[in-house]
Each structure stands twice: as C-alpha cells, then as structure tokens.
Amino acid sequence: IDAAQIVDEALEQGITLFVVNNRLQYETSRDSIPTELLNKWKQHKQELIDFLNQLD
C-alpha cells in the first residue's frame, strides 16, 4: 500500500488529507473516522506527509 492509495481511500470516504507545518491534518463532514483508516494514517504518517508535500 502506498501514500497515494491511502489518500484516495480517504477521499472516497469524504475525507481530505493535507499537511500543515509538516503535520498530517484532515477535513471531513463525517462524524468519525474509521479506525482502520486512522491506523493506516499512523502507520504511514511520514510517507503521507512526504507525498502530500510533493503535491503542493
């Protein structure tokens, strides 16, 4: 699994991931984030931050 897949998966569930001051953040209108997704974010945090920083 790679960062792009995780970002896409989040988007499919209505969650936008982004980076502020090198910290992973998210925006969503959902009430809660699925635990499975949160765990993936934690496991791949640095990859996600690097990936999202490249997009900007």
Rank of each mutant, 00 (worst) to 15 (best):
L55P: 07
S32Y: 12
K40V: 08
L37C: 06
L11Y: 10
K40W: 05
E27Q: 12
G14R: 04
Q46W: 08
N22T: 04
Q5G: 13
V20H: 12
E47R: 07
D8G: 14
E9T: 04
L38W: 06
N22A: 07
Q25C: 15
L38R: 05
E9N: 04
R30H: 07
I49W: 02
D2P: 08
D2A: 12
E36K: 06
L24K: 00
D31H: 09
Q54W: 11
E9F: 04
F51S: 01
L24D: 00
K45E: 15
L37R: 01
L55Y: 12
K40Q: 08
A10N: 01
V20E: 14
E47W: 05
I1L: 11
A3R: 02
L37M: 08
L11T: 07
A10H: 01
S32T: 11
R23M: 15
V20A: 08
N39A: 14
K45W: 15
L38I: 10
T35I: 14
Q5E: 08
K45I: 14
A10S: 04
L52S: 00
L52Q: 00
L55M: 12
S29N: 12
I49D: 00
K40T: 07
L38S: 05
S32N: 11
F51R: 02
L37F: 07
D8K: 15
A4T: 04
H44T: 04
T28P: 09
G14D: 05
L11H: 09
F18D: 04
Y26L: 05
Q43H: 08
Q5V: 07
D56K: 11
H44S: 05
D56R: 12
N21L: 06
W41K: 01
L17H: 01
W41G: 01
L24S: 01
Q46P: 04
E12D: 08
E36R: 07
L24Q: 00
K42H: 13
D56T: 15
W41Q: 00
R30I: 07
I1T: 10
N22W: 04
D56I: 14
Q46R: 10
V20D: 08
Q46N: 11
Q46T: 09
A4Q: 12
I6W: 06
N22K: 05
F18Y: 13
V7P: 01
L38F: 07
L52M: 04
N53V: 12
L17Y: 00
D56A: 14
N39Q: 12
I49T: 05
Q46S: 07
E27Y: 14
K42A: 14
T35W: 10
D31W: 04
I15R: 01
K42P: 02
D56M: 13
Q46C: 08
Y26K: 01
L48I: 14
I6Y: 05
R30T: 06
Q13V: 06
E9K: 04
D31G: 11
K40Y: 08
D8I: 15
R30M: 12
Y26V: 06
D50E: 11
N53T: 13
L38G: 03
K42W: 13
E9R: 04
I6V: 06
R30G: 07
L37A: 03
Q46K: 11
I49P: 00
L48Y: 01
D31E: 11
A3N: 02
L52P: 00
Q25L: 14
L48A: 00
Q54D: 09
D31P: 11
L11K: 14
Y26F: 10
D31N: 10
L24P: 01
N21M: 07
Y26R: 01
I6Q: 02
K40R: 08
Q43W: 07
Y26Q: 02
L38D: 02
P34R: 03
N21R: 05
L48P: 00
D2K: 10
S32G: 07
P34Y: 03
R30Q: 07
I33D: 02
V20L: 09
L11F: 09
V19D: 02
N39C: 09
F51E: 01
Q43S: 11
T16L: 14
L48Q: 00
V7T: 03
T35F: 11
K42M: 14
L24R: 00
W41D: 00
S32E: 11
Q25D: 06
L55D: 07
D2M: 13
E36A: 10
P34L: 03
E27I: 14
E36I: 07
K40P: 01
D2V: 14
N39Y: 09
D56C: 12
A3H: 03
V19M: 03
G14V: 02
T16W: 12
H44G: 03
T28L: 03
I15V: 10
I33F: 04
N39P: 03
Y26W: 15
I49V: 08
P34Q: 04
E9P: 00
T35M: 13
G14C: 08
T28C: 05
V7K: 02
R23H: 14
I1F: 12
E12W: 08
L17S: 11
R23D: 15
L17P: 00
E9H: 05
T16E: 07
K42R: 12
Q43F: 08
I1S: 11
L24N: 00
N22L: 05
T28W: 04
V20C: 15
Q5W: 11
D8L: 15
D56P: 13
Q54F: 11
E47Q: 10
L37I: 05
V19C: 06
S32L: 07
S29V: 09
L48W: 01
V19W: 03
N39E: 14
F18S: 13
K42C: 15
G14A: 04
Q54C: 09
I33L: 06
D50Q: 10
Q13E: 08
L55H: 10
L37E: 02
P34C: 03
R23G: 09
L52H: 00
E27R: 14
V19L: 07
L11Q: 13
Q46H: 08
L55I: 11
E9Y: 05
L24T: 00
R30P: 02
E47P: 05
Q13K: 09
K42T: 12
L52V: 02
E12T: 10
F51W: 09
N39M: 12
F18N: 07
Q43T: 08
D50G: 06
F51H: 06
